[in-house]
Write a protein that binds this DNA or RNA. Structure first.
Lengths: 140, 140
DNA sequence: GTAATATATGAGCGCTCGTTCATATATTAC
DNA sequence: GTAATATATGAACGAGCGCTCATATATTAC
């Protein structure tokens, strides 16, 4: 994920021309790029964990690092990316900085994907089990 | 996106332990990785366009390449990835191979993200317009 | 048979991404 | 004042990704 020039993730780069994309089939270059950027944010497990952490509310940098066993600089770099995409806001109090999610869309996508993952792997259908029937038969 | 060892995108690598992820907050390494792989598929504009093309039904490789102005090998490589993630199925007829989407989840995520992109950029709120009021005032 | 068409795939290349390390700044404690 | 703590950020490195080119295979047309 590249860090953009302080542009939010939404808002089209060009003007209009959404008509062709009415039925989904046939994405314009512009929209395909926007979508890939949105999904790109979620395509890293570290960022996903950070976002998920923020879904429980406002958390400071060092707390995120502690909870996720990440280096502070790693967390700061990722938060910077999320900040420049306008997905989080921050608030400084003393020497600690608290971050907060401010985008519903990304969180909604995460939730939906999570539902799907759970749906397919949660159901205790055929938990691997080995049943052995051991015995000795003496042939005389 | 790496090509996996013929493993589908769903199905957890380890056994169970989904309990901790009940409220979304606190993703396990395993689940975060699974999610990042799902989003990773959608994090490339070329793949998005291919998937969107397949959302209109069964399409063959050369047709996809033609519609999207992509090289045939590019399309084949991406389709191979999608095939190994079990997101598409293919059917050979003569010398042409038809591909078809076979995963609802990914298509649903695309649709949802698309709705959000449209929602925020579609509305014709303040289309950039310059209004000039030019005149000459002669001071005598 | 040969030629043309459709697809698959390995190798290589350039680019991007995520992490780590080192360091700078700001704030609090003393 | 100094020390400790919290955060931000630039540089560098290694890994992975997507594309292109070349080539192999399969099928159809002739």
């Amino acid at each position: 994920m590249a860090i953009p020039n302080s542009l939010p993730i939404n808002g089209s780069a060009t003007t209009g021309t959404l008509a062709l994309t009415g039925t989904v089939a046939g994405l314009s270059d512009d929209i395909a790029l926007q979508l890939s950027e949105i999904f790109g944010v979620l395509a890293d497990s570290t960022r996903l964990k950070i976002i998920a952490t923020l879904m429980s509310g406002e958390v400071c940098v060092c707390e995120i690092a502690k909870r996720l066993s990440l280096q502070q600089s790693t967390v700061s770099h990722q938060l910077r990316l999320l900040r420049e995409l306008r997905l989080v806001t921050n608030r400084k109090q003393g020497r600690t900085v608290y971050y907060q999610l401010c985008d519903d869309h990304v969180a909604a996508l995460l939730r939906q994907a999570l539902d799907h993952v759970r749906e397919t792997s949660e159901s205790p259908v055929l938990v691997p089990t080995v049943t052995m029937d051991v015995g000795l038969r003496v042939t005389t």
